[in-house]
């Protein structure tokens, strides 16, 4: 572990000012991933700027009919917030599917977006990894890659984004509010995370001197027909092999609107407009769901150990859409898959 300085930011402006003066500094909020990585010598910031005390802890309805979530809202508070439980239960369930209650109590909403991959090689400083050391090579492609990506991969990187919450945020088409030296801007969720390409060291389109201040949810929460299904190697406290967020708006048994996002399969929550479009106007049956799954998994490619994820994801998509259509979302605590 490399030593670092510690300072506190008093407000957002102060945070931006501090990071501008020290490009090798990093913000710390919940710390659940950053401290972990610092201890493994994967991250080595010169300074941690503590933003955990910033007044970004409210969850409020917006005038547009949506909800604005402060970046410092702990994951647990968000999951159990009446506005989220009631109007965006997909988000609540996705959050509660991830990590443990202790970690969710610590982790911030903004920080959740900035989690780094769990790729074994990213974590092991004794092996090459383009994300950790650009240009050193990707060990996972021919290595132990059970947990790695099948979609949107590049020759440089097959890492996945580990968040559950982000899969729901992608499906709900959230907006990320950020502030930097040039002022505030918003980033559509689909544009927030990046594919690895030739620059896998960059996970997101957030600039290094910017800070996430809030996440905005649009009015539509799909609170009637939704489900989040997470498949993993043990029944709790494990990262997803594949997870599916499905949200439907139905007219009888006809699909009026559909949202579908995958976790555990790509460098970002995986969506496809074609897959969602394929569901429009369709009856809620397995044939339609299978077609959507095929669209969503179009171009999927396995790397050996993770080949099974393609078929697993296909079946999981169909299943989750079925749960959403029936209004029987997957339970968090009852592990029988509905």
């Amino acid at each position: 572990m490399i030593p670092f300085q510690y300072t506190r930011a008093n407000d957002v402006a102060d945070a931006i000012k501090q990071i501008a003066t020290d490009p090798s500094a990093k913000f710390i909020a919940g710390g659940t991933n950053l401290i972990d990585l610092i201890k493994y010598d994967v991250e080595a910031p010169s300074r941690l700027i503590d933003i955990s005390h910033l007044p970004l802890r409210s969850v409020e309805p917006t005038s547009a009919g949506g909800v604005l979530i402060g970046a410092m809202v702990p994951n647990t508070d968000l999951a159990y917030h009446p506005l989220i439980e009631g109007r965006y239960p997909l988000l609540a369930r996705a959050i509660l599917s991830g990590a443990s209650q202790q970690l969710r109590n610590m982790a911030s909403t903004g920080g959740n977006l900035l989690q780094r991959t769990r790729c074994f090689y990213y974590y092991d400083t004794a092996t090459p990894c383009n994300k950790r050391e650009p240009g050193s090579g990707c060990s996972a492609i021919d290595g132990v890659n059970r947990i790695n990506a099948i979609l949107g991969t590049s020759e440089a990187c097959i890492a996945t984004h580990p968040s559950d919450m982000c899969v729901a945020l992608a499906a709900l088409e959230a907006t990320v509010h950020v502030t930097g030296p040039a002022g505030a801007r918003t980033i559509a969720f689909a544009d927030f995370h990046r594919l690895p390409g030739n620059t896998p060291q960059r996970d997101t389109n957030l600039e290094p001197d910017e800070i996430i201040t809030a996440i905005e949810l649009p009015p539509k929460g799909f609170s009637e027909n939704y489900s989040y299904l997470k498949i993993r190697d043990r029944l709790s406290y494990a990262f997803a092999l594949v997870s599916v967020a499905a949200a439907l708006e139905l007219d009888g048994d006809t699909i009026k609107e559909a949202r579908l996002a995958l976790g555990g399969v790509a460098h970002k929550p995986w969506r496809s407009t074609a897959a969602e479009a394929a569901l429009l106007g369709q009856r809620t049956d397995a044939t339609a769901f299978a077609k959507a799954a095929d669209w969503l998994l179009h171009g999927a490619k396995g790397y050996g150990h993770n080949d099974f994820k393609i078929g697993l994801a296909r079946r999981a998509i169909i299943r989750t859409l079925g749960q959403a259509a029936r209004g029987k979302p997957q339970s968090i605590s009852d592990k029988k898959i509905r």
């Binding site: 074994f120 043990r234 029944l235 605590s333």
Partner: peptide, 30 residues
């Protein structure tokens, strides 16, 4: 039966899941 396996990358001769997030042992829910 269901979870435990130390995963090696034989190219490097290293254990790749030398931690207890990825070396899975049963948790309460299991």
């Amino acid at each position: 039966a269901l979870h435990e396996e130390t995963l090696f990358d034989h190219r490097f001769g290293r254990v790749m899941n030398a931690n207890i997030a990825e070396y899975h042992m049963p948790v309460n829910a299991d």
